[in-house]
């Protein structure tokens, strides 16, 4: 498949996630949108890895593994991030009884 298709698909998914971040007020949904953006990037990394592999196949049989391993590490980091992030959201809910980021305007002060 042409790499362009993957590129534009990833961009579309990424932008959908971004619009979600900008337009929603629920902290959990914003969080999920961020996960979607990460996944869009993951998809693109895998696509590029395969592109690279196809291009340099003659030189090295295992070329392109780096990209896929990056995806793996991104998943690792995402998992850790989600665990901490959800803990923060739970604590926030416990304190203000809402997950609405509109109330998180302490940055103003």
């Amino acid at each position: 498949m042409p790499i362009n298709y993957y590129l534009f698909l990833s961009l579309a998914l990424f932008t959908i996630g971004m619009v979600g971040v900008l337009t929603r007020r629920n902290a959990i949904i914003i969080f999920m949108c961020i996960e979607l953006m990460l996944n869009a990037v993951n998809l693109l990394l895998v696509a590029f890895s395969k592109m690279h592999h196809l291009k340099n196949l003659a030189l090295n049989a295992s070329v392109g593994t780096d990209g896929q391993l990056f995806v793996f590490f991104i998943m690792v980091v995402a998992a850790a991030e989600v665990s901490v992030g959800l803990a923060i959201i739970v604590m926030m809910y416990r304190n203000i009884h809402s997950v609405d980021i509109q109330f998180l305007n302490r940055l103003k002060h």
């Binding site: 790499i3 993957y6 696509a47 395969k50 392109g64 780096d66 391993l69």
Partner: peptide, 23 residues
């Protein structure tokens, strides 16, 4: 990138054997 292709349905780098060795 227009002319570049991504290898579809072939190649062994996505297999757990190759990735595991690298990892």
């Amino acid at each position: 990138l227009k002319s570049q292709q991504a290898m579809v349905g072939a190649g062994s780098i996505g297999l757990i054997k190759v990735l595991g060795k690298e990892l």
